[in-house]
């Protein structure tokens, strides 16, 4: 095995270890933050573009000006908002229970 190969292998091991450690430590924290942000975004979209999911809201002029910026997020938002949920979906609130 060449010295370069050993170096590559070591780098790969270090990357794997770093990723596993990230998964064990801050990943959950990051996910939680993303979830909080998504909830606020969902709420904002609901009050400004609720008619897209059947909520009878007449979009005001300023809301319509936001439309081009909101278009990329519409699919994600509708999927997230209309997805059926039950208690078992809430289990991600309590990871690491066992």
């Amino acid at each position: 095995m060449r010295l370069g190969d050993i170096g590559d292998k070591l780098r790969q091991i270090a990357r794997t270890a770093r990723e596993v450690l990230y998964g064990m430590t801050t990943y959950e924290w990051v996910q939680g933050t993303k979830r909080e942000r998504a909830e606020v975004e969902n709420l904002f979209l609901l009050i400004s573009f609720g008619d897209l999911v059947g909520l009878p809201i007449l979009p005001p002029y300023y809301t319509l000006r936001l439309l081009p910026y909101v278009v990329p997020a519409i699919n994600r938002w509708k999927r997230s908002l209309l997805r059926e949920r039950d208690w078992t979906d809430l289990t991600d609130l309590i990871e690491g229970i066992d």
Partner: peptide, 28 residues
């Protein structure tokens, strides 16, 4: 169904760490 929150692809190494931390606490 990528939504950046619940449905988000992640590396297998990251998920391995996440899964292990999620299942291994006081029970074992």
């Amino acid at each position: 169904y990528m939504d950046g929150v619940d449905f988000t692809p992640a590396s297998r190494n990251v998920l391995f760490g996440y899964q292990f931390k999620s299942i291994a606490a006081l029970g074992p």
